[in-house]
Every structure is written in structure tokens, then in C-alpha cells.
Amino acid sequence: MQLLMKYTLLYSFVLMLVALGGMFSERSGIINIALEGIMVIGGLAGVLATNMMANSSPMMIVTVSILCAAIAGILYSLMLAFASINLKADQTIGGTALNILATAIAMVIAKRINGTQSPRIDYNNGPFIFDIGGLSLNVFIVLGAVLLVVSYVVLYKTRLGLRLRSCGEHPQAAASVGINVFKMRYTGVIFSGLLGGIGGFAYIAPAVQSWNFEVGVSGMGFLALAVMIFGQWKPFRIFLAALFFSLFRAMANIADSIPFLAQLHWPKEIYNMMPFIASMVVLALTSKKSRAPKAEGIPYDKGMR
């Protein structure tokens, strides 16, 4: 039971962080399908930073490596922003390109750093983990909780948030009252890069001490998209949706150690499938009352009515 809780918490904050990122981007009007790739790049940067500072104090390692993950995520997301905002490219295709590119880049860098043909990088995740009452927690849970509240405040209680949301609903109307749509959309994508980068690192670092970059982040970024839709582009709903999805995801990890589930002798793959099936069911049930930002995916054109 404790294991189930551990993994559920672990995954839920990952999914929540990344989905919050997606929320900022889509609320500003840019579909961010590149979250998977941003996670990979953020995770890679975080892991490399952790390794580079192996001799520093734990506090330093945690702060700097998370910063590195965030910055890498932001830089990578700028490629999406540039293509879809400045060049008015197809956002879905641009995002897909960045996903493919991210895994390829991560593999090239990982293999190069290893000096071998294995894309697996080892690291010490000790500084990220702590225990409370026997339950293993990690720093990303604390950070995630803070960022959730911050996200809510930014999106609903600040001028920036209001402007950002208006650009996702009707950019021409927003522009007519003097809001800089380009700037707002860039802000949205940059937030998604920040949260996606941290989310990617949060997925990789606390769980294991060695990561094979060949698998990228095994579809977590795409699950986060489903979490975002299930959460209806609203921060606290996204958190609840993330909890729901990670329960399924956690089952895949611990199915063997729960007596009741182990007796079924289901292959691990069945559990791996479950979050994806659950997301389809949920999407099918909620599709009729979807509250997606109205202008998402449409390049901003000043002259359009």
C-alpha cells in the first residue's frame, strides 16, 4: 500500500507539472504537443547537472540541477514558440518534430558522454529523496505543490494571467485593447518549457539511479496532455486528474507486490496500457462539454476577424 502511495505521488506531481505547462501554453493559444520532447531535454539537462556537481552539497545539487532542467526546457520550447508564433507554422507538426528531435539529441549526447554505444546514464538521486514517517517522498512533490498554487495565482489573479487567457480565446479582441499577442503567447510557451523541463527531471530523477534515454520519457508527456484535457485547462482540476491517472500508472510498477493483483498473473504490459485506455475513456466521456481555449492551434493573424 505504501509503495502504491509512493508511486502515485511520484507520478501525479510529474503529470501535474507537465500538464500545468501544457495549460499555460494552450491558454495562450499554442497547442504544445512537444511536451514529451521538452521533458526529455529537461530530464537530460537535470541528470547531467547532477552528475557534474556530484561533490557539492545536496542543497546545491538540487537547486542547480532543477534550474538547469527548467532552463533547458525553456530553451527547447523557444523552438516551438519561434516556429508557431513568428513563422505561423503548423503547431502540431512543429511539436511532433521537436519530440522526434529531442529523443535523437538526448541519445547522441548520452552516448557521447558515455563514450560507448549505450544511451544509459547513471546518477545519484540521493539528494532528491527524503523520508517522512516511512513514506519515501521527493523534493519535486514540495516544489510541485508550490508551483500549483503559483500557477493558479498567476493564471487567475494577475494581469498577466488575464491577458494570457484572452489571447487563447480571441487574440484579435485582445490585440484591440492593446495586448501584445506575440508576447503573451511567448510567455505561455516559456512557462510550458519551464514546467515541462522540471517535470521531465521529476520523472527521471527520484525513481531510479540510471536512465536509458532510448525510451525518452515513455509517453508521459502525452499522458500529461490527456491530464490537461481531463483537467479542463484549470490548475486544481489538473491536479485531481493527475492523481487519477497516476494511480493507474503506479499499478504497472507494483502489480507484482500486491497479492491480489499478482494472483491474476497479468503481463506487465496490461498495466502499462491502462493509463492510456483510461485517458481515452475519460476523453470520450468529457468530450461533449470540453472547454478548450477557443483560439488554440490557430496562428495569430492580425487581419482576421
Partner: peptide
């Protein structure tokens, strides 16, 4: 090929 898709997007 990733770079090519990225460029193809625009």
C-alpha cells in the same frame, strides 16, 4: 530527419 520535419512545418 527531425530538423527536416521542423523546417517542413513552415
Amino acid at each position: 530527419s527531425g530538423v527536416i520535419i521542423y523546417l517542413c512545418a513552415f
